[in-house]
Design a protein around this nucleic acid. Sequence first.
DNA 1: ACAGTAAATTAGACCAGGCTAAAGATATTA
DNA 2: TAATATCTTTAGCCTGGTCTAATTTACTGT
Lengths: 163, 163
Amino acid sequence: MELSSSLEDYLEAIYNVIKVKTAARATDIAKKLNVANSSVTNALQILVKRGLVNHAPYDIITLTPEGRKTAKQIAWKHEVFRDFFITVLAIDSDTANKCACSIEHIIPDEVVERFIQYLDFERQCEYGGKRWVEGSGFKRNAGINENGQCEVCKEKQGKDARS
Amino acid sequence: MELSSSLEDYLEAIYNVIKVKTAARATDIAKKLNVANSSVTNALQILVKRGLVNHAPYDIITLTPEGRKTAKQIAWKHEVFRDFFITVLAIDSDTANKCACSIEHIIPDEVVERFIQYLDFERQCEYGGKRWVEGSGFKRNAGINENGQCEVCKEKQGKDARS
DNA sequence: ACAGTAAATTAGACCAGGCTAAAGATATTA
DNA sequence: TAATATCTTTAGCCTGGTCTAATTTACTGT
């Protein structure tokens, strides 16, 4: 059965806490997601019912194999989008994170794959590197001159001027 | 005050119906959004209260200037994302639309601007043109050889082989 | 070992946003 | 113009997700 965006957030938060602390408590999750403790309890009960989380009342929180798999998937999407926003769109880290966090629940896997392939492509092709130039938009890194123009833009302008 | 994703969807749907029909009826919106008629009535009452829609019971539906402005903004975001998914990621039109429709409510304006700038950049720079090659990912259009490799990939492979 | 504190849970409420069924208003057409 | 069909609205219900306040459990230090 499908998880709601909200439940995915809880699962991901648990995953991230466990990565550094080995044992997660409800308060950690609550702080991370900025919700009341009781909301966490509520979500936990659902996630336990769905077989994604191990948790007896007042006990610590761990993930089932199934839960870990699902959480990994979500965290992976998050990373892809974060990467995209930062390295391609030059968005600041904080905004990038927030955007990633909201769209990760929505964009289907095939499309996430395309983002990955696109990122790979940009990294492999040496003309793919680009940077954000304030007030003038994106420019290729390769051969940027003092006016913030790449080889291609420069050549084009030359051609345009001659014709 | 902020509009929820749901209300934005309604507003956008009204905007799109009005663009082709001049007068919108509740049923049009219901069909477009795949919801019950009563849900539309409900949403309309809220949108009227917020000063975005003109609508008396049993009357036709139009947008206030404020509503039109907001709707345009939403529709504009939709177009940007749709464009990005189709021309950059080579996603099929249907999926592109669905993705655009869900993230358009979530991504802040500054980030949408970056998407636009990025699209412009890719279109202006002649090395920016790229195409999707089945089974091998994105390749530059410029100088693609019979193996689907662009000039850059080819040179790199040559260099790698020689070293 | 136990009192005090911190954390977790329960209970109960609220809101948004959807639905169905029934009633009310409007259009169509014989 | 009366009957019928089609919209629209209302009323009432449900679910998911949040909250606060009160209670229960567990931990910690002396």
